[in-house]
Design a protein around this nucleic acid. Structure first.
Length: 487
RNA sequence: GAGCCGUUAGCUCAGUUGGCAGAGCCCCUGCCUUUUAAGCAGGUUGUCGCGCGUUCGAGUCGCGCACGGCUCACCA
């Protein structure tokens, strides 16, 4: 028998003993009057008479001193110390606690509050009941749980053992809730669009493919909500947003999980400048609500999210960083030659726009520490964005970067159905040339556009990355409760 | 998909030149009625990730595989 089995057998036999004593090891309910935090708050300083409370929680520490025992019960509000005395509880009740209750079990304790010699508010237990048996031991109390694999695969142990992990996920929830509050406050309507889509679109990414047996058709897990949300703009819902999981069949890394949470926002009668204002207001407001400040620290760097953020065109950003003016190299070959002088090979890039993007990734992106909007992108890498009226090789698009992380993407939406069709066709040509991730022609979306769509600003940003930023985490797996791992 | 690093008790980790598998915590027994990393005395605990090989002998050396981490590529 392995040690694990022995430990489990010990606990099983304690459970059986409880049953023999007429105690249900898994009673159906508790009956408490205070959470741990409420009980601590209920203590009245300097009063003779203290309130009597009933608290419940998981037993997380025990200190036995013969005929009396100190222990801590923990619930989600915190931990509270309990004090059990043999002459108060009676021999049998005290001995059952001592002999049949293990660390990790759940108990409920009733008693008057008092303060110990060392100043800790404590429940002097006059009655206790058993609430639930743990058949396996919890991670060790000093060092907690370090093993990354166990932390991710058995996240419940991680949450129990590591307070800072728990804090990250509590913050994650608060961040998402603050985002909702912000968008609701602007009059945006939160909507839900399909996860299972007959045709994928709205981003350049490889989809997951699935099959509906009854409909006898292939469906795709969404890679973005974009095309559905724009249909809603066409339908007269002038401000909509969705917070949803996207699924991309691509590499897994510290910054990429196959399913991740994105928020997309669309506002009729707005453009990409309005979306920039939205982004900087939202980030600073969410940070202030959740962290109490818009000045954050990420991996030792101080980052100020207070608006306005720096705005710089992609052309100027590349010129600043690499000394190459993409506007004087509008021909693919010329740009490749200019880049070669800087030691960068762009010859393998399929188009001028892709080459520009590569230059940007190489020279600019890693250095964008303070929040920055990069504005005006090449058209061939932006098939859903509106052309710049005075520069039709570019579109009204921005991405924003914080701490070197790409945090979101937005544009003035393309609402000309004929131009949209032409863009899809360019994507098809790129696909024919062997480009991996292109957007398929969505006839149903074009049909929607042909019914008329107002000028619209659209935005997508990664919730996981926002959480990483605001909780100072390097890996996306630290902000997703159950990240994808190999089996 | 490629490169590098890692995997030893339930947890956190040592393990020397290839020579009996270790520590702390946990757990068990005893003592202890204000402890809190409780203390004191004693005790149990292993598929050294998996497989193959080299060797008299492998946790240790070699090869393969699995999983994890980091970097790169793709991407948000």
């Amino acid at each position: 028998m392995t040690e694990t089995d022995e430990r489990r057998a010990q606990r099983l036999s304690k459970m059986e003993r409880l049953r023999e004593l007429g105690i249900d090891p898994f009673p159906p309910r508790a009956c408490l009057t205070h959470t741990a935090a409420q009980a601590l708050a209920a203590h009245v300083p300097d009063a003779e008479q203290q309130p009597t409370v009933t608290v419940a929680g998981r037993l997380v520490s025990v200190r036995v001193m013969g005929k009396s025992t100190f222990a801590h019960l923990r619930d989600s509000s915190g931990a509270i110390q309990i004090y059990l005395q043999r002459d108060v509880l009676g021999e049998s009740s005290y001995d059952v606690f001592r002999q049949q209750v293990d660390l990790g079990d759940f108990c409920q304790c009733t008693g008057e509050l008092f303060v110990t010699r060392t100043g800790e508010i404590t429940v002097r237990v006059t009655a206790w009941t058993f609430l639930g048996k743990a058949l396996r031991p919890l991670p060790e109390k000093w060092h907690g749980l370090r093993d990354t694999e166990t932390r991710y695969r058995q996240r419940y142990l991680d949450l129990l053992a590591n307070d800072e992990v728990r804090d990250v996920f509590v913050k994650r929830t608060r961040i998402i809730s603050a985002v909702r509050r912000f968008l609701d406050g602007r009059g945006c309507l939160e909507v839900e669009t399909p996860t299972l889509q007959p045709i994928y679109g709205g981003a350049n990414a490889r989809p997951f493919t699935t099959y509906h047996n009854e409909l006898e058709r292939t469906l795709y897990l969404r890679i973005a909500d974009e095309l559905y949300l724009k249909r809603l703009i066409i339908g007269g819902l002038d401000r909509v947003y969705e917070i949803a999981h996207n699924f991309r069949n691509e590499g897994v890394s510290t910054r990429h999980n196959p399913e991740f949470t994105a928020c997309e926002v669309y506002e009729a009668y707005a453009d990409y400048h309005d979306m920039m204002a939205l982004v900087e207001q939202m980030y600073s407001q969410v940070a202030t609500e959740v962290l109490g400040t818009a000045v954050i620290t990420y991996q030792g760097q101080t980052i100020d999210l207070t608006p306005p953020w720096r705005r710089i065109t992609m052309r100027d950003a590349i010129f600043e960083a690499a000394g190459i003016d993409i506007e004087t190299h509008r021909e693919f070959d010329g740009l490749v030659a200019a880049a070669r002088e800087r030691g960068v090979d762009l010859a393998t890039q399929p188009t001028w726009g892709k080459a520009v993007e590569k230059l940007f990734d190489q020279f600019v992106e890693p250095n964008l520490v303070q929040p920055t909007f990069i504005v005006d992108y090449p058209i061939d890498i932006s098939p859903l964005a509106k052309k710049k009226p005075d520069a039709p090789h570019l579109v009204e698009r921005f991405e924003f970067f914080i701490a070197g992380l790409e945090c979101g993407n937005a544009f003035t939406e393309l609402n000309d159905p004929l131009d949209q069709r032409a863009r899809f066709e360019q994507q098809a040509q790129a696909a024919a040339k062997g480009e991996d991730e292109t957007q398929p022609l969505d006839e149903d979306f074009i049909l929607a556009l042909e019914h008329g769509m107002p000028p619209t600003g659209g935005l997508g940003f990664g919730i996981d990355r926002m959480v990483m930023l605001l909780t100072d985490q390097v890996s996306i797996r630290e902000v997703i409760l159950f990240p994808q791992l190999r089996d």
